[in-house]
Computed example of a mutant assay.
Amino acid sequence: MLVLGIESSCDETGVALVESNGSATPLLRAHALHSQIAMHQAYGGVVPELASRDHIRRVLPLAQTVFAEAGRQLAEVDVVAYTRGPGLAGALLVGAGVACALGAALGKPVLGVHHLEGHLLSPFLSVDPPEFPFVALLVSGGHTQLMRVDGVGHYEILGETIDDAAGEAFDKSAKLMGLPYPGGPWLARLAEQGDAAAFRLPRPLLHSGDLDFSFAGLKTAVMTQAKKLGDQLEARKADLAASTQAAIVEVLLKKSMAALETTGMKRLVVAGGVGANHDLRRQLDAACARRGVRVHYPELHLCTDNGAMIAMAAAMRLQAGVAEASPRYAFDVKPRWPLDALQAAA
């Protein structure tokens, strides 16, 4: 079964081909990705209308690139998958419209995929794929969640953010320091030059006794500290970046270890854009090694939004029998779509 996946939920256009054979883990045959970072940089954030228009320009050329790289033909596709939500409504409509048009033209079924499930299953694209069951830390610009994952479509949310996600804390803190968009990667690079103990910033909900997260208070503390520094901010920016990253990473680390202890599991999966953070990986690797826990990540180039994770999620859902591709080509999108709603549907 050859699955074509299309991702267009925000500011990256992704297309990929994944092939499923029997019960083995599906294989990535080719993928291509275009990031809109340069286009949105002038505005300091994603402009939804511009994002949607750029998806229209990029998706078909990217598809041509993928088919050429894989040495396959459009007519060989068995299922066309696309991101149905969550995300920007206009951006989602582009991917959904293209996918359903291709499906109708080919006479092949289509399948709408949950964006977060794509991230959750993306480590199965790596050279060291995990095995079920596991605890998952899903950590990105819009979401921070801990989940128990017993199989495809069998997810239990253990804890989640009650306000800003970890990725938002990185990006918003970076903006307060005057770093370019998107701020998270810039802050992480700058933090390598700073002293993580220079400023004692809060670790919200670190000792709450549950597995929920909160990062809005940290952002406020960074803003307060930046104002206190005043003219000295430029000279102390690396220290403030390092202290901010240390606070975020400590919370993610401690909550993840608590989730492993609560569930008794010995396998951790980390997915989402913040999962590419080197300090987070280093500390998680060390903590898991001490506890005899295996930890899995997506390949670095597959941490951000991409078509490969959408094609993989579709292939795994179909293979597990928890979803059925549809020959109906009328479509809708779900800009807001909680992952536990998907669990209920499964």
Rank of each mutant, 00 (worst) to 15 (best):
C100D: 01
C100I: 00
C100G: 01
A101V: 04
A101Y: 04
A101S: 15
A101I: 05
L102H: 05
L102A: 13
G103F: 00
G103W: 00
G103L: 01
A104E: 02
A104F: 02
A105Q: 00
A105C: 02
L106Q: 03
L106H: 06
L106E: 01
G107R: 05
G107A: 09
G107M: 08
G107S: 07
G107P: 07
G107D: 03
G107I: 02
K108F: 07
P109C: 05
V110M: 02
V110N: 03
V110F: 05
V110G: 04
V110Y: 03
L111C: 13
L111E: 11
L111P: 10
L111G: 08
L111Q: 04
L111S: 12
L111M: 09
L111W: 07
G112F: 11
G112N: 14
G112S: 14
V113W: 06
V113L: 02
V113K: 07
V113R: 03
H114A: 11
H115M: 11
H115Y: 10
H115T: 15
L116H: 08
L116G: 07
E117F: 13
E117Y: 05
E117G: 13
G118F: 00
G118V: 11
H119A: 13
H119Y: 12
H119R: 06
H119C: 14
L120T: 07
L120V: 08
L120P: 09
L121E: 06
S122K: 00
P123F: 08
P123W: 09
P123C: 06
P123V: 14
P123D: 03
P123N: 04
F124N: 02
F124T: 04
L125A: 02
L125Y: 00
S126L: 04
S126M: 06
S126K: 12
S126C: 04
V127C: 10
D128R: 15
P129H: 03
P129W: 01
P130A: 02
E131W: 02
E131R: 15
E131I: 14
E131M: 14
F132M: 11
F132R: 13
F132W: 13
F132D: 09
P133Q: 05
P133I: 13
F134Y: 09
F134M: 01
V135P: 04
A136L: 06
L137P: 02
L137A: 14
L137R: 12
V139G: 08
V139M: 07
V139Q: 02
S140T: 00
G141N: 08
G142N: 04
G142F: 10
G142S: 09
G142D: 06
H143S: 06
H143C: 10
T144Y: 08
T144G: 07
T144D: 06
T144R: 12
Q145A: 15
Q145N: 10
L146Q: 09
L146Y: 08
L146D: 10
L146V: 11
L146A: 11
L146G: 11
M147L: 15
M147N: 10
M147I: 13
M147R: 05
